[in-house]
Amino acid sequence: MIRTALLRLVLLSSMLATSLPALAQNILTVRSGQDFERSMTALKSSIESHGYTVSHVQRCDSGLTGLGYETDRYRVVFFGKLDEVRQLSADYPELIPFLPLKIALFAEGEQTIISSINPVSLGAIYRDADLDIQFRRWENDLRSILLELQRGAAGAGD
């Protein structure tokens, strides 16, 4: 009797858990209704509120338009946590090309596209249980950051 009760509870909670989406696209991308400058500001503060430090912003647009590219604003934002970067680069040097984490954002008209590699897609390459946990944690944070930017559009109004 009690066993079945517990079982039911476990079943119920696992039902709740699996009703949450568990997606694994390789590249996470959202579109924000906010323009480039506002998205940039929102991105930085969202990254920081998730406990990361923005280490660097790289401009990639010099010369883009000259080559017929249809956006004149393109940036890559680097961010990380010192301890994480230090520990992982020592234990898993193969992760170094992906550190610190990066989010690219670029203008599409009055809107902004914000995109990042889904770290979980690297899991299929490394096949390491500890790294998997790390990748999932990053994925959660990245999804949450991107969602905040996408939602920011709703408040901005157009």
């Binding site: 883009l64 017929g68 956006t71 990066k102 670029f106 995109s115 590699i117």
Partner: peptide
């Protein structure tokens, strides 16, 4: 730049990998 932009034309999100 020349090669990078050729790649970005086919995939504008390329910057995520830099």
């Amino acid at each position: 730049f020349e090669l990078l932009y050729r790649m970005m034309r086919v995939e504008p999100r390329l910057g995520v990998g830099l």
